[in-house]
Nucleic acid binder design. Sequence first.
DNA 1: CTGAAAGCGCTAACAT
DNA 2: ATGTTAGCGCTTTCAG
Lengths: 343, 343
Amino acid sequence: MRQVTIYDIAKEAKVSVATVSRVLNDTAPVKVSTRAKIEELIEKYNFQPNAMARSLLKKETGIIGLIVPDLTNPFFPEVFAGAEHEAQQSGYTFLLSNSIGDYAKESEYLSIMREKRVDGIMFMGGRINLKQCEEPLVQELVQHASVIPTVLVNGGLRNTDLIRVSTDEAAGTALAVKHLIELGHTKIGFIGGESHMTTTSIKLRAFRKTLKEAGLAIREEWLLPDSFSIDSGKRQMLKLLAMSDRPTAIFCVNDYTAIGAIKAAAEMGIRIPEDISIVGFDDIPLAHHFIPELTTVSQQANELGRTAVNVLKAMMNKEKVKKLTSLEPQLIVRQSTGKPAAT
Amino acid sequence: MRQVTIYDIAKEAKVSVATVSRVLNDTAPVKVSTRAKIEELIEKYNFQPNAMARSLLKKETGIIGLIVPDLTNPFFPEVFAGAEHEAQQSGYTFLLSNSIGDYAKESEYLSIMREKRVDGIMFMGGRINLKQCEEPLVQELVQHASVIPTVLVNGGLRNTDLIRVSTDEAAGTALAVKHLIELGHTKIGFIGGESHMTTTSIKLRAFRKTLKEAGLAIREEWLLPDSFSIDSGKRQMLKLLAMSDRPTAIFCVNDYTAIGAIKAAAEMGIRIPEDISIVGFDDIPLAHHFIPELTTVSQQANELGRTAVNVLKAMMNKEKVKKLTSLEPQLIVRQSTGKPAAT
DNA sequence: CTGAAAGCGCTAACAT
DNA sequence: ATGTTAGCGCTTTCAG
């Protein structure tokens, strides 16, 4: 059945569509009696103006496009929650897509969002986390960004000046490693992360730097990148545990790998933190509830989402914004780290 | 800068907009040479047709509205992933909103989606999980559903015939409780869930029925609803552990409460499953990774999402669909359940 | 194979 | 205070 339009209302109220539009948007004074009649009709037919028609003319849709790699990773819903909270106040809604790390899918969604004329795009993961991103993929994003306000969250693209909002992962890593050092650890390992991704290299670099500044040796055989999954944490921890000389503390690139590492330890009868300390990264909700509760670095996902939306709002308003807005991560000390066992 | 339109292309190609539209949609034969020229221009200007204009005319947006209570609960991203997978093949994208259990927000989002003329709505949580939903809230949803295809996922509304897709929670509960009974447990408790919500009452009813059919006594003091959080699981477990006569096995309404219960047990030095068996519900990703790994009932969230979208697609096609599509949950036996300790 | 023109539902001058 | 009208960018007859 056809939806009722502003014309139907106008006709039945015996006024012009302009008048109906006026009461709808409260954009000019309307006589009380006619306004009353119109409102009655709107109520009666449950009329809702067609946003599509309005957008066509106003050139704004009230939609923000959000591309994330994988909503199933608890970090992203948290970012989304923050973003939504901030966006909602200004009447924005989200068109959401999982790219599953598939660049073709990223491109497709980018296109769809552009066709749908979203007012802004928040882009996370995928190509913007690559140490080496292929030029066509870079150009594609740059092209889109030149037409529609775009903010890259926790990532970036070399040699472009796209607007970014990021947590300072290097600082976060330093925080975690210093915590380990302060506890008295001198033998520290590194687990997880894919080597071709920026998150991994940023963290690895900060890891090395922090150890070095503390005058500690870097043991290459204890540096074990892999992926971001629980299984990879498990796998690498097992490898570490099999060594005759092993670290007493481990920095994991994220909470998932940390959990994997703890599970591996548990299966081998190694106690956390008595035998080995483990620190994660992200502070996903479950970090707080795992046994033992996970010491980790909070990326302030919620805050990240809010900030990204605020930057985007500024851009949509054609205000000037900083190229990079950086958020400070926080160390959350819980149960998975402690002093090294006395030798 | 103004986006380029079909007119710009037409003018530069010295053809009419109709012809450009034809090559865009491949809706009628176009001479190879003119098609080539038009495509070249499209490429040159990176032209993307305005979906808004098209939708206005075609009366379809390619958008599905999804309302969930809280994406931060890992169950929902899983449903979303399934839904997106299924939707994507038909070119649909999602407008997503968290209602945070706030009925006013639900209403607002419903309105926005209607204004934006989404092609269909998937509604989860909130009012459709209430044992007793206020009439205006019911009517509002009914009204919207009469205008735009709507499917209620894992919920329903009394005395309405809105289309539903649900996992059979009663069957799932029976599965879990029978598993406990088969292991030899006769003293079984129930933890979690808000009493005014249907999930809770459905599970509680199935729980009682299953015990009864097995000839086991129902101990009212071991029935401890509360909420769905980890903390509530912890809280009620502590209560249970303080009793002189306590159950040897516990059914928890979801994985979060189960995890809370396990944490409480761990803190009190009670071993799972040696001293007490615990079974959860939902099979969130972390159930598999918790220590001990959680025995639970899978709601097949992914499948649920896919099914919901398929039903919605059928509705949007004006096909006839069943009032209720029911999914069978599955018992996943892992480490948190075992035989009762010998007395 | 291509063009002209109407119209999707709404807003915003411009009149009155 | 209210009506008329010209678009917004596109698709789709209907002609040619």
